[in-house]
Amino acid sequence: MKSRIGILSLLLGACSQAMAIGIELSDMTEAEKEALSPREVMLANEASRKSITEQSNMKMTLTNARGDKRVRDVLMLIDDSNQLARKTYLEFSSPRDVKDVRILTLEKEEITEDDDRWLYLPALKRVRRISASNKSESFMGTDFSYEDFEIADGVVGSKNHEYTLLREETIEDALGVEKHCWVIEAIPVTEHQIRESENSKRIIWVDQEHFAAIQEHYFNKNGELFKIRTSSDVRPYPAEGGKTVWRPMRIEMTTQATGHKTTVLLNDFKVDEGIPENVFTRSYVANQQL
């Protein structure tokens, strides 16, 4: 069984794909923006955020319906140099009793092969191999699924989905900033996508200024709205090749039926600053020696 885990691609940016749709995002005129098809908007969205590597100190806050919170701090490193096989390294620094728990995920290029995942628990002082997860499973016990962290609508994703422009409208993002958006409906069309995805439909609000997807509604296989994501505090970061990527520093996912939500805040965010290759190895996970 192959589980494509494009971990945290949502947070990822690089302009390597920018030319794929033949447009320079920052120079686009209003008229050119007007002329974009919904599919082109989604390609531009990918282009606006894609990078080769990224790193950040992530603060994940899980809040249940009663308002109780669990907070986790994690260092996250991603290497997307091979676009078909992402490498992700996670190192938890809090809560205190799980400090130094480390997880490495190495995707395989072959879609039929399982990803390699390694877990280091300081209490056991050893590395254990752990099984891969399905796309539709929860990411690290949060409201996000692994699927939610992939770039669902980029060059690859747009082959699996049909896009329809529902309307254009101005909405407030989670921080109350007004954004003029395209409202685009994405429906999985390929057999593979229909089978693998937990969504039967998504509605995406793409900001017309920086092409950031600032809000997304997810509909489950029964056609019910079951999750809502909001992204805000979108900031520019210089990336490889002199490009600029725009990335939200605050992302929140709420599960409608349970009222549970996960808020992710990115700190010390950097893209394309070069992460040593050895970080993404089993031995580094075990002893943190490069």
């Binding site: 809560p95 009793d97 799980v98 628990l121 300081p122 929860s138 996960t262």
Partner: peptide, 13 residues
């Protein structure tokens, strides 16, 4: 705590 954490991150909220 770490065992629980493992369970926690392997399931849904």
């Amino acid at each position: 705590a770490q065992y629980l954490f493992l369970y926690d991150i392997s399931g849904t909220p």
